[in-house]
C-alpha cells in the first residue's frame, strides 16, 4: 500500500472532523439529556446560557477546566491521572471503524466515510469495549477509597458479564453478513435491516449496551445513593469531565453501532446517507435518555442474574437457531 500526500491529508482530515464532531455531539448530548429529563420530570432544565441554553456545554467546560485539580494524598498518582483517559479513549477509538455514510468521490478517488475499514471490525469494537473496563477499574482503585473500590469491582463484574451477552448477540449478525467488516455488514442490509431477522439479538444487544454504558437501570458502579458516585467519587475538574464525556461518547458510539448492526446504518430511502445515520443515532441516544428517565435501578444480584442466567443463554440459543436457519435455508 502506497500512501501519497492526498491520502494522508484525507486521513488526517477524517480524523480531525470526526474528533470535532464527536466531542460536539457529546457535549450537546449532555445538554439534550438535561433538557429532555427536565421535560420528562416536568421542569425546564438549563436554558440560561445562550439561546435555549445552547451555550451551556461551553460553560460547563470552562467550569471544569478552571476547577481545582484534586488528587487524594493516598492515591496512586499515575493511575489516578490515567484512568479518565482510559475510560474516554476506547469510546473515541470506536469511531475509527464506524462508516457514517456511503462511500463518496473526493479529489478523484473513492473515499470511505470511515477512518479505516478493518476486516475484523466487529472484533475491534469488542476489543475496545473490553478495554474500556480499565478506566473504571483503575480509577476506583487508584483513588484508594473504599467506595470507589467497591464501585470499581461492581463495574468490572458488570462489564465483563454484559460484554459476553453483547458479543454473543452480535454473532448472528456476523453469521448473516458472513463478515466481520462493518461496511460488509451495512451492505448486507441493503434489502432488509437485520432487526427484522434478529429481533431477539437486537433486544439483547440493546440491554447489553445500556449496561455497558453503566446507565440507569444498570448504573450500579456509580450509584449515588449507595456508593457516593462510585469509582469517580474522588475525581473532580477536568478528570471527572473526561469520565463524563467518555460516557456520552460511548452512548453515541454504541448507538451508532446498534444502528449499523441492526438498522442498516446509513442506508435509508430519500434522505442522504449521513442524515439517515445521524437520525438513527439520535433515536438511540433518545432511547438511552428515555430509559434513564423511566426505569428504576436494579439490585446488584438482579443485574447479575439478568446477565448470566437470562441474556447469555438466550443469546446462545439465538446463535443456535440462526445457525440452523442458515443451514436449512
Amino acid at each position: 500500500m502506497t500512501w501519497d500526500a492526498i491520502d494522508i491529508a484525507l486521513m488526517v482530515g477524517k480524523i480531525l472532523v470526526l474528533f470535532f464532531v464527536i466531542l460536539t455531539l457529546a457535549a450537546y448530548l449532555v445538554l439534550a439529556e438535561r433538557r429532555i429529563l427536565g421535560w420528562m420530570q416536568d421542569r425546564i432544565g438549563p436554558n440560561r446560557v445562550g439561546p435555549m441554553g445552547l451555550l451551556q456545554p461551553l460553560a460547563d467546560v470552562i467550569k471544569m477546566l478552571t476547577k481545582e485539580d484534586m488528587i487524594p494524598s493516598a492515591a496512586d498518582r499515575l493511575l489516578f491521572s490515567l484512568a479518565p483517559a482510559m475510560a474516554a479513549i476506547p469510546a473515541i477509538l470506536t469511531f475509527a471503524i464506524i462508516p457514517v455514510g456511503a462511500p463518496m468521490v473526493l479529489f478523484g478517488r473513492e473515499v470511505n466515510l470511515q477512518v479505516t475499514d478493518l476486516d475484523v471490525g466487529v472484533l475491534f469494537f469488542l476489543a475496545l469495549s473490553s478495554i474500556a473496563v480499565y478506566g473504571i477499574a483503575l480509577g476506583g482503585w487508584a483513588s484508594n477509597s473504599k467506595y470507589s473500590l467497591l464501585g470499581s469491582i461492581r463495574g468490572l463484574s458488570q462489564l465483563i458479564s454484559y460484554e459476553l451477552s453483547m458479543g454473543l448477540s452480535l454473532v448472528p449478525v456476523v453469521m448473516l453478513a458472513k463478515s466481520f467488516r462493518l461496511s460488509d455488514i451495512v451492505n448486507a442490509q441493503a434489502q432488509m435491516p437485520f432487526i427484522v431477522y434478529q429481533p431477539l439479538a437486537f433486544a439483547i444487544f440493546l440491554v447489553s449496551i445500556i449496561a455497558e454504558c453503566r446507565r440507569i437501570p444498570f448504573d450500579l458502579p456509580e450509584a449515588e445513593g449507595e456508593l457516593v458516585a462510585g469509582f469517580h467519587t474522588e475525581y473532580s475538574g477536568m478528570r471527572f469531565g473526561l469520565f463524563f464525556v467518555g460516557e456520552y461518547i460511548n452512548i453515541i458510539a454504541l448507538g451508532a453501532l446498534a444502528s449499523l448492526f441492526f438498522l442498516g446504518g446509513w442506508r435509508g430511502p430519500l434522505l442522504p446517507p449521513i442524515l439517515w445515520f445521524f437520525i438513527k443515532v439520535a433515536i438511540f441516544s433518545f432511547l438511552f435518555i428515555w430509559v434513564r428517565g423511566t426505569l428504576p435501578r436494579l439490585r446488584y444480584d438482579q443485574l447479575m442474574h439478568l446477565g448470566w442466567k437470562f441474556l447469555t443463554p438466550l443469546a446462545l440459543l439465538n446463535i443456535l437457531a440462526t445457525g440452523w436457519w442458515l443451514a436449512l435455508r
Binding site: A127, V133, I153, I160
Partner: peptide
Amino acid sequence: APLVAAFEVIIYAGAIMVLFLFVIMMLEL
C-alpha cells in the same frame, strides 16, 4: 494475524487481565 490480534485484546487484555484485576481487588478488599 488480525484475528489473533483481536482476540489477544478481547481475551487477554479484556478478560484474563480483568479477571486478575478483579481477584486482586477482591483480595485487597
